[in-house]
């Protein structure tokens, strides 16, 4: 007699799915987190110098913002496909695509943060004998932190959701489970993976919000 559990009945919510596919789910979540974290960190490493350049050399702001905006308006599936000849079917392809997306959000927000640093503050620091590097590291970047963190949160949440499209090349974290579940009409798998995606996005957002509060204690007074 065939088993008559929720898996056999193909129900949306199924506890037996969670217990029997635990390892698969954990692996997918792990891949999802790795892809997101690596892409956002690389994006950040490129975005900070770009934003500083756009702030210091006024002529470069237009081209930097223009190119990142163009990159951002290319749909994710097309972005991954355009990178196919360069990276083949690999996790690097997904990371490269996600880096390009997070760049736009990060550069825009960091630049806005740097531009919002009051001129008097900068002049005061210069008057106290701060050189350009020290000014940047100890005055401008910390003051730009709230805006930069807002960008980082948006970029991270978007990356978590965009990783799923990586399923087209087999490196989509939970997206792989959604893709496979679609082809087999496996409702429990699709719903579980989708919910986990949202949970990861919300958790990452809250984590970054907490980090922002710890990093910028001077803004807390204004909030409470």
């Amino acid at each position: 007699m065939p088993p008559n559990d929720c898996l056999a009945r193909n129900e949306w919510i199924c506890g037996a799915y969670l217990t029997s596919r635990r390892q698969i789910l954990l692996d997918a979540v792990g891949q999802h987190l790795r892809l997101t974290a690596v892409s956002v960190l690389i994006g950040l490493a490129i975005a900070v110098p770009l934003a500083v350049l756009a702030r210091r050399r006024r002529w470069s702001a237009g081209p930097v913002l223009g190119v990142t905006t163009i990159l951002y308006s290319i749909p994710s599936l097309a972005m991954f496909s355009l990178l196919l000849p360069l990276y083949g079917l690999s996790a690097t392809l997904v990371v490269a695509g996600l880096v390009l997306y997070s760049l736009t959000l990060l550069v825009r927000n960091i630049l806005a943060g740097l531009r919002a640093v009051p001129d008097e503050t900068r002049q005061a620091a210069r008057g106290m004998g701060y050189g350009p590097i020290r000014l940047l590291l100890t005055v401008e970047l910390p003051l730009a932190l709230p805006a930069a963190m807002a960008g980082l949160r948006i970029a991270t949440v978007s990356a978590v959701s965009l990783v799923t499209v990586g399923a087209i090349v087999g490196f989509g974290g939970l997206g792989n489970l959604i893709y496979a579940g679609m082809n087999t009409y496996f409702k429990a798998q699709v719903l579980t993976a989708s919910v986990l995606c949202v949970v990861i996005a919300v958790a990452a957002d809250l984590l970054l919000l907490g980090a922002q509060r710890l990093l910028t204690p001077w803004t807390r007074a204004a909030w409470s």
Partner: peptide, 18 residues
């Protein structure tokens, strides 16, 4: 808008398909 960003498009498409 923030909520919309957290929900993967692909997941919604597949959920609707099923």
């Amino acid at each position: 808008s923030n909520a919309g960003r957290a929900v993967p498009t692909f997941a919604v498409l597949v959920l609707l398909l099923l």
